[in-house]
Amino acid sequence: MSKDTDRRAFLKGSVLLPALGAAACSPPATHQDDLAASAPAAATPAAADYKPAFFTPAEWAFVQAACARLIPNDANGPGALELGVPQFIDRQMGTPYGAAAAWYMQGPFFEGKPEFGYQSQLTPKQQYRLGIRAIDAWCAKTHGKVLADLDAKTQDDVLKQVEAGKVKSDDLPLDVFFTAFLLKNVMEGYFGDPMYGGNRDMAAWKMIGHPGARADFLEWVDKPAAYPYGPVDLHGRQA
């Protein structure tokens, strides 16, 4: 892809920022501890008939490809795709988290050291919008195809380079996008309670032997054998 495209992309990005920023500044939705409202989430939507609400078709292809490589389906257990992680992330972007509604999002914005925490003015939604575009643009330039169209080995290689900070973008630090958002959200969708829409059938918990949302295990701590019961989720369902 030409330099031209890159610059246009950058401009589009800068136009996008204030608009999204305005959304991020709107008062955070009030969070209530309302048991009635916390009825079980609809079962994780199946990938086949899922229509993403946030991601564009190109972004959706990226997210699915990334999920498949970050937690692949292999001898250890099911992958992020089988557990509904792409659907989880798409719906996660529709929550107050996606708009950084509960974060301090006013300036000044500095490039701080990691120990100062997240310093960017980008919301998670903006991270995905700009991050995916930048990585796909880099893939197109380097490999002639967007990430989703590369073979698995090349995809792994690209993601490793992104994580190591070797892939640069003028819009945002892509290593931050990778570790603080993409990888983190994939793990949330994979290991989180099924009530949030991922971890279908608690398969991730079964794989690692996590007993789930029982509050306390005092009776078991001095028992030498492995914990014998399958997991339970926050809504009390057992697997």
């Binding site: 509050a215 009776e219 028992k223 054998a225 014998p228 339970v232 009390g236």
Partner: peptide, 22 residues
Amino acid sequence: MSGKQTDPGALRFMNSCSACHR
């Protein structure tokens, strides 16, 4: 503690009650 309890009431007690009532 045998790990073989399958009674749904017992499992539910373990899931939801035993943290407090032991």
